[in-house]
């Protein structure tokens, strides 16, 4: 889409979109939203970028390979936090009972592992959206992506 208006508008709003996405991800435990919503916003911003400029510009910012690696990374972070709780001696995904500091409710750094898990989910969702977009648009032989 070689439209100058779209390009300019994209260039202007993109930082805000991404910032908002990050906000939603990081405040998942305090307000509506969370990993999935925020991740979707971030992913959509990247897709917007790739649509407004072009595919090569988009993949210069975040290549297909990196996004699929991030995809694994997000999921691993989630599972890793779960197993971390086991290593601390409680059940899978244990939080407060595992002795992870909870902090004051209402603060940004509160509710222990939830924030990290939400962050992992956000990374996973954002990168998955991008990967899906790439896979569909490139029509490569990588389209066996799952969730």
């Amino acid at each position: 889409m070689e439209d100058i208006i779209v390009r300019y508008v994209t260039r202007i709003i993109l930082p805000f979109v991404q910032l908002y996405g990050l906000y939603v991800v990081l405040h998942g435990h305090l307000s509506p939203g969370g990993g999935f919503s925020g991740g979707a916003i971030i992913g959509a911003s990247m897709i917007l970028y790739a649509l407004a400029f072009n595919l090569s510009a988009g993949s210069k910012k975040l290549s297909h390979d990196v996004s699929s690696a991030l995809e694994s990374g997000g999921a691993l972070l989630f599972a890793g936090m779960g197993i971390f709780a086991i290593l601390l001696g409680t059940n899978f995904l244990g939080n407060k009972v595992a002795g992870i500091p909870i902090g004051t409710p209402g603060n940004l750094f509160s509710s222990g592992a939830i924030m990290i898990i939400t962050f992992g989910v956000g990374v996973k969702v954002a990168s998955t959206m991008i990967t899906l977009f790439y896979s569909l648009i490139e029509g490569e032989d990588h389209s066996h992506d799952h969730d």
């Binding site: 995809e71 999921a75 691993l76 599972a79 890793g80 779960g82 197993i83 059940n91 899978f92």
Partner: peptide, 16 residues
């Protein structure tokens, strides 16, 4: 839980 999670973990490790 590990019977499930370890499989999931390795599933996501596999692309790496």
């Amino acid at each position: 839980v590990l019977a499930v999670v370890v499989l999931l973990l390795f599933a996501y490790l596999m692309p790496l």
